[in-house]
């Protein structure tokens, strides 16, 4: 077995306040390269909170998160931001596309920030990603001209822009019909099988969850 790409130990997140709220309560979690993990559980069970911690968007109250064996809890804000840029991709229930920018510009945004490729190379890669996701010919369109399923696929393309090892998805099909939902999961499956990516996705859909390699069920901030 390969070493885990992402690993969390005794992860705890308590929202401070007059009445502290425990979002995540001592979770151990790991995922490997080429593995697609579904996180399931009732609404309010802490799935999103766990995902934010794994994605370095939030800081745990206790415990650790390691990516590629590197402990991330003690990193500075800037270092965690850079890790997100290079190694992590996010897809949320809402597409979060920037409405003023074309589909291609939206996809290229993380590449422009990373600035590792020339502008031409960035655009080529953006077009390539869109083509792979069945969005050829949509490059110049604005997000508002797209259907819900198309927008979500653009969001996936954007999440993949910098070639991240790990894709974190929070109910990515929550706003989609079953046909579009299956299309997104087929794309995920392809990324895992062909490119060895690690995908962690929160989903309410039992069928889609079953299509993953592994399911993690949560309740009250804990993994059951």
């Amino acid at each position: 077995m390969t070493a885990p790409v992402i690993e969390a130990r005794k992860l705890k997140r308590i929202l401070p306040g007059l009445i502290p709220v425990t979002l995540v309560d001592g979770v151990d979690f790991q995922a490997r390269s080429g593995e697609m993990v579904a996180i399931t559980g009732a609404s309010g069970s802490g799935k999103s909170s766990l995902l934010y911690l794994l994605g370095l968007l939030d800081e745990p109250t206790e415990g650790s998160v390691a990516i590629d064996g590197q402990d991330c809890v003690h990193l500075s804000d800037a270092e965690r931001t850079h890790l997100r840029l290079e190694r992590l991709g996010f897809v949320f229930q809402f597409h979060f596309l920037l409405p003023e920018f074309s589909v291609l510009d939206n996809v290229c945004m993380p590449m422009k920030k990373l600035d590792a490729l020339s502008t031409d190379e960035q655009e080529d890669r953006g077009r390539h990603l869109l083509k792979e996701l069945g969005l050829e010919g949509y490059e110049k369109k604005l997000p508002e001209q797209l259907s819900g399923g198309e927008r979500q696929r653009v969001a996936v393309a954007r999440a993949l822009a910098n070639g991240p090892r790990i894709l974190l998805a929070d109910e990515p099909t929550g706003n989609l019909d079953s046909k579009n939902s299956h299309a997104v999961f087929d794309i995920f499956r392809g990324l895992v099988q062909d490119e060895g990516k690690t995908i962690i996705t929160v989903t309410h859909d039992q069928g889609l969850a079953k299509s993953c390699d592994r399911q993690v069920h949560m309740a009250d901030g804990r993994v059951m």
Partner: peptide
């Protein structure tokens, strides 16, 4: 929302 997604994709404050 745009600020949030830019921050999560790796834009700095």
């Amino acid at each position: 929302r745009d600020i949030a997604i830019l921050r999560s994709m790796g834009f700095e404050p």
